[in-house]
Computed example of a mutant assay.
Amino acid sequence: MPRWRQIADELERRIREGEYLPGTRVPSVVQIQEEFEVASATAQKALSGLRNRGLTYTEPGLGSFVRRE
């Protein structure tokens, strides 16, 4: 399984378990890079994966946030 997908799955788990509540910000690309020790492209792809799954939305200049259901 690609590393970006593993990261997206982990972040999804955190969302579903309530670690990241609706309306709150998820980790930034830089924070993901540091926590998972990956390149920025991998971190960005993980965030895109969450957005494509409908779990997050992005506010330009502010970051990615957990979508309210």
Rank of each mutant, 00 (worst) to 15 (best):
M1N: 10
P2S: 13
P2H: 08
P2C: 03
R3Q: 12
W4Q: 11
W4D: 13
W4Y: 15
R5N: 07
R5P: 01
Q6N: 08
Q6F: 05
A8N: 00
D9P: 01
D9S: 12
E10T: 05
E10L: 11
L11N: 06
L11Y: 03
L11I: 12
E12S: 14
R13M: 12
R14N: 08
I15S: 00
I15W: 00
R16L: 15
R16N: 06
E17W: 08
G18E: 14
E19Q: 12
E19Y: 15
Y20C: 10
L21P: 03
L21R: 14
P22G: 14
P22R: 07
G23M: 12
V26G: 00
P27E: 06
P27I: 03
V29D: 03
V29A: 15
V29E: 10
I32F: 04
Q33E: 15
Q33R: 15
Q33H: 03
E34W: 04
E34H: 11
E34D: 12
E35L: 14
F36V: 05
E37I: 10
E37L: 08
A39L: 13
A39I: 02
A39C: 10
A39Q: 08
S40R: 12
A41Y: 10
T42G: 10
T42Q: 06
A43P: 08
A43Y: 01
Q44W: 05
K45E: 10
K45L: 07
A46G: 03
A46S: 15
L47D: 00
L47S: 03
S48E: 10
S48Q: 05
G49W: 03
N52V: 05
N52Y: 12
R53F: 02
G54P: 13
L55F: 09
L55N: 04
T56Q: 08
Y57P: 08
Y57Q: 07
T58K: 14
T58V: 09
T58Q: 14
E59C: 01
E59N: 00
E59K: 09
E59F: 00
P60M: 01
P60S: 04
P60L: 08
P60K: 06
P60V: 01
G61H: 09
L62K: 14
G63Y: 02
S64D: 13
F65C: 04
V66N: 04
V66E: 02
R67N: 07
R67L: 15
R67V: 00
E69V: 04
E69L: 05
E69G: 14
E69K: 08
